[in-house]
Structure formats: C-alpha cells, structure tokens
Amino acid sequence: FVFSQAVHSALRSFRFFSGCTFIKTPTHVEAGKVFPLCLFRLSLKSILNPHRAEKVTVHFVNRDGEKITVKGSPGDSLLDVVINEDLDFDGFGACEGTLACSTCHLIFDEETYKKLGPVTDEEMDMLDLAYSLTDTSRLGCQVCLSKSLEGIVARVPETISDIRQSKDGSS
C-alpha cells in the first residue's frame, strides 16, 4: 500500500512538473514506431488505482449529426473511448491506434483544437491522407483525455476514407 502510494505521488508530481506531459508530447517514438504515450500512463494508472481518476465527459457527433455523450478516463485516447464505449462509427480505428491509417480522424472547434496541444509530424502525415481534412483535425488515437478537456465536442467526419493519391496502391 505504502509503495503504491509512493508511486502514485511520484506519478502526480511527474505530471505536475512536466505540465501535463501527455498532452504536450502525445506520442512516444521508439525504433521508428509511434505509440501514444497515454497508453503507458493508462496501464500504470489502472494498476495503481482504477477508480481514482475522475472521468471526463466527451461529446461525439456521429456521421448522422447525432450527439453521443460518453465518459472516458484521463489518459485514455479518444480512440480508447470509442472502443471502450462500443461506439459504432463504421471502420473507425482500422490500424488500432498505431498511426498507420487515418480512420480515427476527428474534427474539433478551433478553441478545443488549441487545447489539444502540438501535433507530431507522423500524425500530420497520416492526417494528410484523411478525407475532409480541416485545420482543426486530429487523429483520435493521438488525443489523450485530461480534466481540462471536460465537455469537448469531437465530430466524426462524414466519411473516413483515406485519399492517398498513390497511383499504384500500396499500403
């Protein structure tokens, strides 16, 4: 118990010092592969205390314009939320959050977009292949929830196709 408390406070102070690290550097690059850093946090946190973190409310607007309100845990990516809540956005997250497609493309209003923090080149590269790309687009797998994002609205674009211009059609 003492150990877990110690780790927990260490984790909190880490977050404090780094000023919401997981938002500013949403990805962890290792050997050319990119993984959302929040995954690491998520697992560590859930081991320590699954009920501790207060849930964050997220409103998704689906392709039919319908608003779906769900809650996710801080540290979860928006793709995690879609999966955990079993939201039915056809084809969403085809590569399972590994930054290899753009099917978890979400659109935000400008104010929210600014709160989401900077975007890595690798995420931009994938976003470039997203259909109906906007200046306030992000990939759901790279946006991690935090309390400051309480009540955000994420719109699922009408179609999630990649528009990769490839003339020969590789992956």
Binding site: I160, S161, D162, I163, G169, S170
Partner: peptide, 19 residues
Amino acid sequence: GWVKTGPTGVIATTMNNSF
C-alpha cells in the same frame, strides 16, 4: 475493391468503397 475502382488507394480507401 480494386476490381471496382482500379488499383489505387490504401486499405482505408478500399474499406470505404467496400462499405
């Protein structure tokens, strides 16, 4: 798929045209 559209695009393109 490709027999419908010609051989362009990535898997997600094919996903949408298949849907």
